[in-house]
């Protein structure tokens, strides 16, 4: 990575938990938007060369994001994120699962917990995936 911002990726094999911690040179409201607005999410969510297309997104507790990752050969991987809890500009949790084209999830999927905090104009996001 080209800057000095924190990036940490850890896997606890015993508890099958993934921890991702990342610091951003932006204030919290901007980072929160980038994680919770579909037009921004689609600009970064898919790792290259994939692109992310959000078909439907209802960011509220009980709502969901239904999106597809499209590969360079046109491969489509559909997935859903069902929001379980939202504390604005602080934390949100969801169930993530691959899905078919009609948004039927392929369970069990994984539980995601994302926490946001700001210090000295930098925002840290802590992601826990179980």
């Amino acid at each position: 990575m080209k800057n000095n911002l924190l990036f940490d990726f850890k896997v606890d094999k015993k508890t099958k938990t993934v921890f991702v911690d990342k610091e951003f040179a932006a204030d919290l409201s901007l980072v929160w938007d980038a994680f919770t607005k579909k037009e921004l999410l689609d600009q970064w969510w898919a790792p290259k060369p994939y692109i992310s297309k959000t078909k439907q997104m209802d960011f509220r507790e009980g709502g969901m994001r239904f999106y597809v990752m499209v590969g360079p050969e046109g491969q489509e991987h559909w997935a859903i994120q069902k929001y379980k809890s939202i504390t604005p500009k602080s934390n949100f949790t969801y169930l993530n699962a691959f899905a078919d084209k009609d948004a039927n999830p392929n369970l069990p999927g994984s539980d995601w917990d994302l926490s946001f905090s700001e210090q000295n104009g930098k925002t840290t996001v802590n992601i826990v995936i179980v």
């Binding site: 800057n3 911002l5 040179a25 901007l30 980038a34 970064w44 969510w45 290259k48």
Partner: peptide, 16 residues
């Protein structure tokens, strides 16, 4: 994740 966050860093710097 690194590839994702590289892209997000760019998105944020454009937003700023």
């Amino acid at each position: 994740w690194e590839s994702r966050f590289d892209q997000l860093d760019n998105v944020l710097s454009n937003l700023k």
